[in-house]
Design a binder for these strands. Structure first.
Length: 427
RNA sequence: GGAGGGGUGGCUGAGCGGUCGAAAGCGCUGGUCUUGAAAACCAGAGAGGCGCAAGCCUCCCAGGGUUCGAAUCCCUGCCCCUCCGCCA
């Protein structure tokens, strides 16, 4: 949620900045709504004041033992007028709130202009794309002997699911454990376990609602309950409606959850393999920090995600998302893209964002500034570190030996019973 | 699923038709004292909105209702706790 004061002060400036992310802000509508709200609010508050004053006078007269009948008679239809004014004001305020709720965050000044993925800006690359002297297979072919069973998944569930078997399932689990341990032991994150079903208030807090209801899986017959699209939602919302002890900042959580996405509107995109699934696992990093620390925190958090790729010896590049590719709540996002030999290109494996106070304002996550005692919004950040399924794909494709086997990166071996090689020929 | 008890400020918790936005304790902030800290003492401070300001308005889980007036009474919903049942 944007600061409405900033909008009131200079709607055109806000609109200009939103154009970087290809969002068109209707400033005329806002101004009209704001003018009406202002008038209605002051009228309603005048009526409220009058009621308060009169009622108080009646109370005082009564305590003195005087006859209150004439005073009560004087009140007349004040109550009715107040009720009517209040109802109109409530409607207007709700409309304004809805309007405000659907405006995305302002992109940071460093965010490049651009409408789509191709306009993202490469920042750096790491690792050497391995010279493969055979025709690399993609993960679907590598797992074709049953390790990655898309047909089984289609039978029990439908499209965009996978069944992993044997060594593939174990590798998936190993990757997860390895990543969580690294963040807890080396990067200073506190592990949390959270519900996979959340209420609407939580989805509103992180920005998935009201605008992106179609992208969520909603539990039928259970009012307002949704499967989480990412751990970001339950973890960040741990601090909804809270005034956090300043000593507790920065808060850093690592959380492993499945993620559920309807992928509405992505028909025909990435239909092969497990790049885009309705259900996938992710190890997520979430930070809540003091406002002055958030940009540094974004660099650090991105570094923590990068550290995983480096330990896994996976070549990758970092890109900064252009305005048009930026998520609703983010002020800036750095994506990590891993090299996939099977596709011959880089694919997103992590997305690290600074939301500034955008989410905090939606969920009233504050801390009390020492000294001044003023309540300030925290800044929130999160990033995948990493998406587990895509990491599995990257390991399989980058470490394939050309003979149906896959060597296991050093870092994962302790989690694979010490094995150095994966045999995918049978399950 | 059955029966009961609750939801009040950062936290605990009192209030149960009118100077109640709310006692008290803890925690917090400033001061006194101290070499410094702790303790003690004094003072301050709930959350949000509108307004240049003076100031005004809202908020005691949420939504309705009764009333001149609701934290307080009534209805509905949500959530929590205890006991019984069922259960990984």
């Amino acid at each position: 949620m944007l600061d409405i004061k900033q909008l009131r002060q200079d709607p055109d400036a806000v609109a200009r900045r939103l154009r970087v992310r290809c969002f068109n802000l209707d400033t005329a509508a806002f101004r009209a709504q704001e003018e009406e709200r202002r008038q209605l609010q002051s009228r309603t508050e005048r009526l409220q004041r009058e009621r308060n004053v009169r009622s108080k006078a009646i109370g005082e007269a009564k305590s003195r033992g005087e006859d209150i009948a004439p005073l009560v008679a004087q009140v007349g239809d004040l109550g009715e007028r107040l009720k009517a004014a209040k109802a109109k004001l409530t409607d207007l305020q709700e409309a304004q709130h809805r309007f405000l709720s659907e405006i995305p965050n302002l992109p940071d000044a460093s965010v490049p202009e651009g409408a789509k993925e191709d306009d993202n800006l490469e920042l750096s690359t790491w690792g050497r794309i391995p010279p493969i002297d055979f025709e690399p297979l993609d993960h679907v072919d590598l797992g074709a002997n049953g390790a990655l069973d898309f047909d089984a998944a289609a039978k029990v569930s439908g499209a965009r699911f996978v069944v992993m078997k044997g060594v593939a399932a174990r590798l998936h689990r190993a990757i997860t454990q390895f990543m969580i341990d690294a963040h807890v032991e080396q990067h200073g994150y506190a592990e949390v376990y959270v519900p996979y079903i959340v209420n609407s208030a939580s989805l509103f807090g992180t920005g998935q609602l009201p605008k992106f209801a179609a992208e969520q899986f909603t539990i039928a017959g259970s009012e307002g309950m949704h499967l989480i699209p990412t751990a970001e939602v339950p973890v960040t919302n741990l601090y909804r409606d809270a005034i956090i002890d300043v000593e507790a900042l920065p808060i850093r959580h690592v959380c492993h959850t499945p993620c559920f996405r309807s992928e509405a509107g992505s028909y025909g995109k990435d239909t092969r393999g497990m790049i885009r699934q309705h259900q996938f696992e992710k190890v997520e990093l979430v930070q809540l920090v003091r406002p002055e620390d958030s940009w540094r925190a974004l660099d650090e958090l991105t570094g923590h995600a990068e550290a995983i790729l480096r330990k896994l010896e996976l070549p990758y590049r970092t890109v900064v998302l252009c305005g048009g590719d930026l998520g609703f709540a983010a002020a800036k996002t750095i994506d990590l893209e891993v090299w996939l030999p099977g596709q011959g290109r880089y694919r997103e494996i992590s997305s690290c964002s600074n939301f500034l106070d955008f989410q905090a304002r939606r969920m009233m996550a504050r801390y009390k500034e020492a000294g001044s005692g003023v309540n300030e919004y925290v800044h929130t950040l999160n990033g995948s570190a990493l998406a587990v399924g895509r990491t599995l794909v990257a390991v399989l494709e980058n470490f394939q030996d050309g003979a149906g086997g896959v060597s296991i990166p050093e870092a994962l071996r302790p989690y694979m019973g010490g094995a150095a090689k994966l045999d995918l020929s049978t399950v």
